[in-house]
Amino acid sequence: MKTVFTFLILLVTAVGYSQNIPADKSAFAHTFSIVARDAKTGEMAVAVQSHWFSVGSLVSWGKSGVGVVATQSFVNPAYGPKGLKLMQDGLSAEKALEQLIAEDEGKAYRQVAFLDVNGTASAYTGAKCVIYADQITGDNFSVQANMMLTDKTVPAMEKAFKENETLPLAERMVAVLKAAEQAGGDIRGKQSAALIVVGPDLVENPWEEYKINLRVDDHENPIEELDRLLKVARAYEYMNNGDLAVEAGDMPEALKQYGTAETMFPDNLEMKFWKAVAMANDGQLEEAKPIFKSIFEQNENWREMIGRLVKPGLLTVSEEQVKEIQNL
């Protein structure tokens, strides 16, 4: 065991320090991933799973209006920001990846995929990536994997991507991860997963960069958990739309948005509460009262919240009606 450990230390040292583009000497992201673009919306995404902690912190990179990058195997994280910069400066995914590979003395240990805003994908699998290691690149996508249990994983990913074209891009990416896992996946098992989605146009503000940005850093079933988080994220998109409707004073629209979110997650008290608030503001106080009462019975803090909504104008009923709600 000591001999094997010493070999790994020497290998990582050699790979991490003897090159022009530095690698993270602690990152062994042997994994499977997909970079893809939705031909209809122009959205671009990266989805990844690995038996390694917090795979999304180093493997997946993206910039709206530019492209996405997956950098794995013995990870060189510089491929992410450097690749996006080259693509933003006008290089295609293929040319950008070729340039960085040429500069990387540790390229034999790398597996990398670039995809640009035009849907052009390019991938590279170094000769010293651990088998089974492979890649398949096509229009608007590239799937790649290394250290897989079988050689069926990458073809299964390609098949899943092509067969799920009617799904929104994020859900399509998760379907690809599921197919990879079902085909055998990482020979070591599973631990973490991540999904990012960026838009087709450059954005002005950093907080607008990601349409979806989800990470499962440590979980016994990371893809299933990622799928669950994506469903929650979709529900909260409706919650956000409801908040915007409240700001605009459009209570019927707020009620519609909050109601849709609650339908997706009927046990979520947050969603129930704001739906009830929208109902009260829309003149449906009597219909909202049983919902408020049920929420208060489960968590008294929501009763206190009612009084705090009046001053900022989030609850627009009369003072007497506020008391009626609080006394439920």
Rank of each mutant, 00 (worst) to 15 (best):
N268M: 04
L314A: 10
L229D: 09
W52Y: 14
S64K: 10
L100I: 08
N118T: 15
K289Y: 00
E287R: 03
M44S: 03
N299S: 07
L230D: 07
V130H: 10
L229R: 14
K152I: 00
G199I: 09
G184I: 08
N118H: 12
E270W: 00
D186Q: 03
V203W: 02
L8K: 05
E105A: 03
P77Y: 09
A235C: 04
A145T: 02
G313V: 02
D24E: 09
K190G: 00
V277H: 11
G138Q: 06
L167I: 11
E224L: 11
P312Q: 03
E262T: 07
S73N: 13
A102V: 06
A175G: 07
D38I: 07
P77I: 14
G184C: 06
N301V: 12
G67K: 03
D38M: 04
S50H: 04
K107V: 15
A276R: 00
N240P: 01
L226K: 06
K231A: 13
G138S: 04
K63C: 00
M271W: 08
L309I: 11
D250R: 11
T166I: 10
Q135W: 07
A45G: 08
T71D: 00
S92N: 03
P200G: 01
S57Q: 12
R303D: 04
V48W: 07
G42V: 09
S192C: 02
A179N: 08
L10V: 12
S18Q: 15
A133V: 00
T166R: 15
Y236L: 12
A133M: 00
Y210K: 11
A276S: 03
M148Q: 15
K275Y: 07
M148S: 09
K293W: 02
D282R: 00
